[in-house]
Amino acid sequence: MRCWAEINIENLYDNIRELEKITLKEKIMAVIKADAYGHGMMNICEALIKTGIKKFAVATVEEALEIRETNNEVGILILGPVENECMSKVSDNNIYFMITDFEEIEYIEKNRINVNVFLKLDTGMGRVGFQEDEISELTEKLKNCKYVNAVGIFSHFSSSDSDEEYTKLQEKRFKEMSENIMKEVHSVKYRHLLNSFGSLKYHDSEYDFVRMGIILYGGVTDEETAPYKFKPVMSLYAKISHIKKMHKDSFISYGNTYMAKKGDVVATVSIGYADGVRRDLSNKGYVYYKGHRCSIIGRVCMDQLMILIPEELADSAKKGDIVEFFGKNINVVEVANLCNTISYEILCGISNRVPRIYK
């Protein structure tokens, strides 16, 4: 293989054990949308079921149905929009989805679709959900519904990792809004609000589920999650395919953005932006190779990139050697920071043509 991603299931299990220091296992709702953040949804789902995890969150109808095809017992909640024409199929497969506006309620009632749903509240994320001034109308409609059975309520933090004051405001709004609904709509049994970083800071809050995403996969730093420690589940590797010692000063890669000097040892690595290595890393990223961080030089190409081999490795570097892009030695958060993005995007961006090796 020219490149691959190793998925360390033992690290996943260690992360579950760490999460149990924060909340009860039966409260964990594992977020496995977007192919489990690039880790392979079904493999991760099967591994988590073995640990006793019984609740899962996805983003699409297709993801939910794929899980249901292989397991009839776990709970599944779709966090993304469900198109009207899919509601019957989702309901028939005992899959929960969210209601975000009055039009969806009217459609379900008009078409007589028996559904168990979660009500999504907009407490400040500004994406989807019922707003504060709609709660009275919502409760009145639900009390008269014959087919919409609201079993739960949830919302989502927008800044739990960066803005404590705003997060507290969102939690305050959620408590008030959900309590007003539950006073009138007695079918509602469950509430959940906490996401990964929210669970670290507000784990004393009384909620029925805790949605665990990025920390489940270890896409965080120890500083962000102290005193808890989460291990990276994915590591990305590629092989060196070519090595040359420059006979003269010469440009490297497209656009002539890097000038290699005479005597430099340059290695070509078989991975590129089509595999998910961001082009942003051109001339500023690095890989881990034989105990050294080697700079990515020149622009990242679609299928390959070049690195500068340090002098102390010049005589030992060879074709077929393996370099690490992130994992045990380079935190994926470091890579994300270099790309001015977040670890979620880096992990989700590893393309399907990169084989996943489970160990």
Rank of each mutant, 00 (worst) to 15 (best):
M1V: 14
I9D: 04
E10H: 13
N15T: 02
E20K: 05
K27T: 03
M29S: 02
A36H: 00
H39L: 05
A47S: 10
G52T: 08
G52L: 07
G52D: 06
K55N: 10
F56Y: 11
V58H: 04
E62A: 13
A64F: 06
T70N: 08
T70W: 09
V74R: 00
I76Q: 00
I76W: 04
L79A: 12
G80C: 12
G80P: 09
P81K: 11
I95A: 05
M98N: 14
E104I: 06
Y107M: 05
Y107S: 09
K110F: 13
K110Y: 13
V117H: 01
L119W: 00
K120H: 08
T123L: 02
G126L: 01
F130Y: 04
Q131M: 09
E132L: 14
E132P: 13
E134S: 09
T139H: 03
T139E: 09
K146Q: 10
N149L: 10
V151Y: 10
F154N: 07
H156C: 04
S159M: 10
S159P: 06
Q170F: 08
R173A: 08
K175Y: 12
K175N: 06
I181Q: 03
K183P: 12
V185N: 03
V188T: 08
V188F: 09
K189V: 12
G198K: 04
S199R: 06
S205A: 08
V210I: 07
G213Y: 03
L216T: 06
G219Y: 01
G219I: 00
T225N: 10
T225E: 08
A226H: 07
P227A: 03
Y228W: 05
K231S: 04
K231E: 06
L236I: 11
H247Y: 05
A260C: 05
G263Q: 06
G263Y: 02
D264K: 04
I271G: 00
G272Y: 01
A274M: 15
V277H: 08
V277L: 15
L281C: 08
K290N: 11
S295V: 09
R299I: 02
R299V: 01
M302F: 03
P310I: 08
E312N: 14
E312T: 12
E312S: 13
D315G: 15
D315I: 14
G320A: 11
D321F: 04
V323T: 03
A336N: 09
A336V: 09
A336Y: 08
C339A: 14
I346N: 05
S351T: 14
P355F: 10
P355H: 09
I357F: 11
